[in-house]
């Protein structure tokens, strides 16, 4: 199982800001190893964020996203104590879900 994400969520006024650090190789599929063979692609393909079960962000990622990606976004709504959940799936079919409480 992949390493856990680090999620921070804070509400300011009527907006919640979420910051997520994900642990992932994000191999583009364009690099070659020392022998000249292409290193196969292995990167996050979908990211989904929910607030109290409701989707607030949905993303499709490609090879341009960096290794150990950092995602920051805002959504209208949210209150202290509410739950924010982030899920990613990658090209190998692996997936990871982590949760944080809005502070």
């Amino acid at each position: 199982m992949a390493d856990p994400m680090k999620i921070r969520a804070n509400v300011v006024g009527d907006t919640t800001e979420v910051k997520v650090l994900m642990s992932h190789e994000m191999e583009t599929g364009q690099r070659k190893d020392a022998q000249g063979k292409t290193i196969p692609a292995w990167h996050i393909q979908t990211v989904n964020a929910t607030w109290n079960g409701k989707t607030v962000l949905s993303a499709q990622w490609g090879p341009a996203v960096a290794k150990n990606p950092f995602l920051s976004f805002k959504f209208k709504g949210g209150a202290k104590g509410d739950k924010v959940q982030i899920t990613w799936t990658d090209t190998r079919g692996d997936t990871r879900t982590d949760e944080a409480t809005i502070g």
Partner: peptide
Amino acid sequence: QDGNPAELWEAR
């Protein structure tokens, strides 16, 4: 500066 992946190592 924001979102330093070092935090992943710190947690581990």
